[in-house]
Amino acid sequence: MTDDAIVRVRGLTTVLNGKTIFDSLDLDIPRGKVTAIMGPSGTGKTTLLKHITGQMRGDAGSVELDGLNVPELSREKLFELRERIGYLFQNSALLTDFDVFENVAFPLRQHTKLPEELIRNIVLNKLQAVGLRGAARLMPTELSGGMARRVALARAIVFDPALILYDEPFVGLDPIALNQVLLLIRTLNETLGITSVLVAHELAAVQKVADHVYLIANGKVVAQGDPATLANDGSPWTAQFFGGEADGPVPFQYPAGDYASALGFPGGKA
């Protein structure tokens, strides 16, 4: 692909507990665009994000971020790199010791010596963007799932990083909040030129926000392209995935033995 790919994955192969998650995966994330990664549950979308940020290492292949080969970076270099990356955890992962305000302020406090006044302004600004400025003094346990997601989102963007990785940002959001979050991702991208990678299952939302979509299954990119047209490109993968069929090339079942013999019936295939 082009030179302005911020992330370049080549030949990534990862085996976890004997299960092949990635099988020589190639993928590029274009700089300054919003890229969506879709795929059935358990294909390794979260795992892919973890490879990009260096939380996990593959068994073979390379993951380049801004020209640096992530798996080979030292801990210090990796931390330096991460200061420029925002990451939204699939399960929010708010720090339960701190209230909402302090959670969002946490990266600022850790990496900058900004005056309290400025920190306050930035944090309230981000909380306002996700509609939770009034919840600044609540503790994480006092939040609903959707509120926690939005706080985690505010925390991920508090630094206005160069790259933001969202792991399922739309889960648990009501239609109003969903729209606001979509708008936020789009605005960040358009006004600040922030590259966004989002893992999501909601095709409608993805179509609104993403410039490019990858469909991952069986450890490979099985389809990619414009979100508006991808669903109807005629390939069996997209047809099944977006059509929601149980049968097709994408396995619905986690790899398992023959069902009949597992239930104890004789004469199963195995």
Binding site: Y87, F89, N91, T96, F106, R155
Partner: peptide, 12 residues
């Protein structure tokens, strides 16, 4: 609850 991983991701 992934808080330790979250800190790693925030370069802490």
């Amino acid at each position: 609850t992934d808080q330790l991983d979250a800190m790693e991701m925030m370069a802490v």
